[in-house]
Design a protein around this nucleic acid. Structure first.
Lengths: 226, 226
DNA sequence: CGACCATTTGATATGGATCAAGCGATGTGG
DNA sequence: CCACATCGCTTGATCCATATCAAATGGTCG
């Protein structure tokens, strides 16, 4: 059973109206070109589940987790968002997950209505919004597949995923705690920890520090990736 | 560990060009108004994972399962699609799941390129496509949350979900086998069976036949729904 | 009736959870 | 600068929910 990480519950503030340049025309960069930059300290809330989804976000620096809490306190982390990632885009009225900064983070805050209005006139923007939601769908499908695997497979998949996303080379600096990893993988911290030490003794990885992981044998990890 | 159900592998045929009326204008009914009706016998394949996603589908009658098979043969069912449901819509080039008819089924087959072309001209259609993908995202998120729950909670959630979707009144006629349910819930058939008999002895449900389930005590099931 | 397949039930095994220390790094106050 | 509290992580011992293996039952169709 996973435990809930306490949050400082720094509630969301309207972004100051210091806007960045508006889009000249369109295409694969439109979304990134509008919005306001905001900073969120470590463990602060960016938005809560079921709150109106008036904004979407793009990570500039830091890391963000989105999650849900079940009635009995179990927490499931839906995603880790790294610099460049967009999160908080909904088709419905409210956010389906909560979002918190894992480390001090800077995010671009973009008004959804602006984007939707733009999409009504510009096909490329409409297409982009659809594509973003489609990519998110694909990601959640993969995550769902993770949750039916063994602990070893989940941890190996997680390491490979993070290596693809954050690392240049074989070393990997994780921004998140063991508890975050556990809640992402549907395991306990003890199982995550034990699995990592086992991978270490199997020479698949090295653990110079708890947050730094070196992938020594990717093919071994890939084999576990099922 | 789940086992794979053998399929007859009736491969997908191009739909005959007997088209239904094309859309006069637009809106919440557009997608339903175009396409060709096709029949698929029980256990036949509608499309396979990674095949080009040139078509999307709407169930007219019967039931369809979408699923993935892991390397070691484990099968995860992503969804059960009932009459009225649209499935097989992708934002990428290929299908991310396979689809099979669970019972003899009739489905409307709709060419994606037609719809995408239409979306480029008609905002409402574009909006609809986005909304459909968004709904699917929401469904998969819920399904993911299922997979971290206990067996009792998963089975209870499943029964309530199906009751909402297929039943008028407290009786519920399941179109799918225990193996399908197990692969949807990430459990074994034995655990599904045992959990159902336990719910029966707790007077939460009755099992007149194995495919027919009567919800006797919804609030008890809701309590398990976590 | 008999064969087959789906489902249930029973016995046992096991992977991961739970409960409980221990340990190492980081930070704080004396 | 060190003693000590705190926090995140690891390790150990035990338990338990679900898987696995196996057999019995029941329903369906030739």
């Amino acid at each position: 059973m996973q435990t809930q990480t306490a949050t400082h519950s720094v509630s969301f503030k309207q972004p100051a109206s210091r806007n960045l340049p508006l889009p000249g025309s369109h295409a694969l960069g439109t979304i990134e070109l509008m919005g306001t930059s905001m900073s969120f300290p470590r463990n602060s809330e960016i938005y809560g589940e079921n709150e109106p989804a008036d904004y979407l976000y793009k990570v500039i620096s830091g890391t963000v987790r989105t999650y849900k809490i079940l009635a009995d306190g179990r927490r499931q982390i839906g995603a880790f968002h790294l610099p460049g990632d967009i999160f908080g885009l909904e088709t419905g009225d409210n956010h389906t997950f909560s979002a918190e900064a894992i480390a001090d983070s800077k995010v671009l805050v973009i008004k959804r209505s602006t984007l939707v209005a733009l999409a009504a006139r510009d096909n490329d923007v409409a297409r982009q919004l659809w594509t973003l939601t489609g990519r998110e769908l694909h990601r959640v499908q993969d995550h769902m597949m993770l949750l039916i695997k063994t602990a070893q497979e989940r941890v190996a998949s997680f390491l490979l995923e993070m290596a693809d996303r954050v690392s240049a080379g074989p070393a990997l600096d994780l921004p998140m705690s063991r508890q975050d990893i556990a809640d992402y993988l549907g395991l306990t911290i003890e199982t995550v920890s034990r699995t990592l030490t086992q991978l270490e003794s199997d020479a698949a990885i090295a653990l110079p520090t708890s947050r730094r992981i070196v992938l020594r044998n990717r093919s071994a990890l890939n084999r576990l990736n099922a």
